[in-house]
């Protein structure tokens, strides 16, 4: 087990103890919520795990490199960004997917852009955002986020 796993689990246990001491009822409710959320996420977790296995087992490094690697170039990066913006999967599950791509030849830039657009931009939730905050603000936020994601990706590619 890695260090991060230990730290996160330790933190969760500490917070749980603190919560139970502070308010038993609320703590119980949040554990129940967490359990339901986890069960709710399970189909996607299993699906992504199998998908990653197939991806790394069947798609060769050369193919991944050609699309999201060095050969993919800027167009590849923009495509990955659009993909991330449209895709509606829990970001928690996107990180393993991103790690698997990085392992098999994707550039840091593509992976960073993918994660950033995936989390910052919500294509699926855009109608809701427009309804609550108005068209101008919602479109500006999502549009500028896309450009920012590209810039973050490029800088990360240069530094790492």
């Amino acid at each position: 087990m890695g260090r991060t796993t230990l730290i996160v689990n330790g933190l969760a246990v500490l917070c749980l103890i603190f919560a139970f001491v502070k308010d038993r009822k609320k703590a119980k409710r949040s554990v129940f919520k967490a359990l339901m959320a986890f069960l709710r996420m399970l189909p996607v977790i299993i699906g992504i795990v199998i998908f990653i296995g197939i991806l790394l087992g069947f798609v060769s490094k050369e193919v991944i490199e050609r699309i999201v690697g060095v050969q993919g170039g800027f167009i590849g990066v923009v495509l990955v960004g659009l993909f991330g913006a449209v895709l509606h999967i829990p970001s928690l599950i996107a990180f393993p997917l991103a790690a698997s791509l990085l392992k098999s030849g994707a550039t840091v830039t593509s992976v960073a852009v993918f994660i950033t657009t995936l989390t910052m931009i919500g294509f699926v939730t855009l109608p809701l955002e427009i309804r609550e905050l108005g068209r101008k603000m919602a479109l500006l936020r999502n549009g500028i986020s896309f450009i920012i994601a590209l810039i973050i990706g490029v800088i990360m590619g240069l530094v790492l």
Binding site: V8, N9, L11, A12, V13, C15, L16, A19, K22, D23, K26, A27, R29, S30, V31, F32, K33, A34, L35, A37, F38, M41, I45, L92
Partner: peptide
Amino acid sequence: LPAVMILMGLFAEF
């Protein structure tokens, strides 16, 4: 993930 979900549940409630 379970630990992360627990943290999220706790903060959402508190």
